[in-house]
Amino acid sequence: MPKQIRLTTPLSNEDIENLKIGDKVLLNGVLFTGRDAAHKRLFDLIKKGEDLPIDLKGQVIYYVGPTPAKPGKPIGSAGPTTSYRMDPFAPTLIGLGLKGMIGKGNRSQEVIESMKKYKAVYFGATGGAGALIAKRIKKATVVAYEDLGPEAIRRLEVEDFPVTVVNDCNGGDLYKEGIKRFAIE
């Protein structure tokens, strides 16, 4: 089994420094959701110098747009969306204290450099495993941009939310390492 680490948000620099690519992490505590439209709105507020609806310090943003919750369930299916679309916004948010991002797929060099500079980490969640991941989300509350529907910012309370470290704060990249290790010439 890969190394398993249990962490509770908010994350500290020390938490981040201990993470290496390929580590399996079980996240507990609070995650905030945000994808394309929410990122654009946060970014516009920052540009105007206005306050954000959430304090990003030490927090983790999960790139997800869940399905509607069935009656009696906190949330619908909730797997990650592809992260590169959030790349133009991520360095700014990391600069404001964001410690973790959860998504799937490659990040830009700018995002990777920001993670190194400010001690942040990029976690991969298993794309397409929306039904499985939803079981680890115990509560979901919309905290901003309700009009965006699935793209609204939600505060999620999670238990042992399963992720894998894709980019650590030392510039490690599981996607690149994985190919190096398993490619056959």
Partner: peptide, 17 residues
């Protein structure tokens, strides 16, 4: 496991429907 849960609980396999 995800496919099993989706089938049994009648929920979408993936949130991107």
């Amino acid at each position: 496991e995800n496919a099993r849960i989706a089938r049994e609980e009648k929920s979408p396999i993936c949130q991107d429907c």
